[in-house]
Design a protein around this nucleic acid. Structure first.
Lengths: 169, 169
DNA sequence: ACCTGAACACCGTTCAAGT
DNA sequence: ACCTGAACACCGTTCAAGT
């Protein structure tokens, strides 16, 4: 076994940077997520991240892609359309900062192929349990809309989610 | 009539800053929306905006609040729930950068009372045409979800919106 | 290969002045 | 009142070196 510090010289810096980035994102919000702060969090110089990410935005995109992979796994573990709807909302509620990064304005999915791929993977899991295409899109838009409104503090706390989820056919 | 330059000395700087900020947001995205660039756009020193906004975030919040007011006006002009749904989606599609700022991760509505108020105003217009509270929330979440997915490029271009909008009761 | 320190052009914010 | 220029501590990114 090597110490974590030595590990950076053996290819472990990339995951260490992503972990530091997520910790920063949770602790200080997206504004605190500077590349230099991420490097400090991982214990390396402000310049070391460029060995693994082409830019700050590329690191953010990688973190968001990781979020989509985790969301896809959570959806796969949930049974049925209603179950996946609840799993989707649970994920967004459990990781609000990450969820906002995944869909936020600072990342254009169009310009990050790996991100778009990871997102498509999560959505295909949702589609797999819907009756038809319009139904899958409606369900996805509904849970995504609820998750977004909740994350922004626009969603009344006393609403029973199931009473809303069942309004979509 | 005074020239626009002189007008800054007579209380017109605030709207001029908001207009410059929106132009920058549209032209360069949220990353290009620096306070110093906004000041340059309005033709004043990098420091002048602090006479009207406490911080960069306060200026962003004011711009987002203006967006909610415009959205509310667009909703008021549309007849019925389906009409308002379409008006909501039209607004998001016509002003994608502004829409993303309104709901984006860089602004927490909770910490900007005026922003939360403006958002609540827009939502109350939507609620006014729904049959009940769960239906209003479902409709709002659905159009908001569709708007967000479209803005992020996750929405298939060939989907007929009405076929999805009618899935919500 | 992987990491570092110095450097560049920026940024938000503060402050002491100017009119 | 409203605006300015200098200053501070940051930031993303690049570059020339070090091992």
């Amino acid at each position: 076994m090597s110490t974590s510090k030595e590990a950076y010289h053996h290819g472990e810096l990339r995951p260490a940077l992503l972990a530091a980035a997520e910790a920063l994102l949770v602790a200080e919000g997206p504004a605190g997520l500077s590349l230099r702060a991420v490097a400090r969090g991982a214990g390396v110089s402000h310049n070391a991240p460029y060995r693994h990410f082409a830019s700050r935005e590329a690191l953010l995109a990688a973190l968001a892609a990781e979020g989509f992979s985790r969301l896809a796994a959570a959806l796969r573990a949930a049974p049925g359309l209603a179950g996946q709807g609840r799993a989707y909302l649970d994920f967004a509620a459990a990781h609000p900062a990450l969820y906002r990064l995944m869909f936020g304005a600072e990342l254009r999915a169009g310009s990050h192929p790996a991100l778009k791929l990871a997102a498509g993977e999560a959505f295909s899991v949702l589609s797999g349990v819907a009756a038809d295409r319009a139904g899958a899109l409606a369900a996805w838009a509904l849970v995504h809309g609820i998750a977004g409104l909740r994350a922004d503090g626009h969603w009344p706390a006393d609403v029973v989610l199931d009473s809303v989820l069942t309004r979509v056919t």
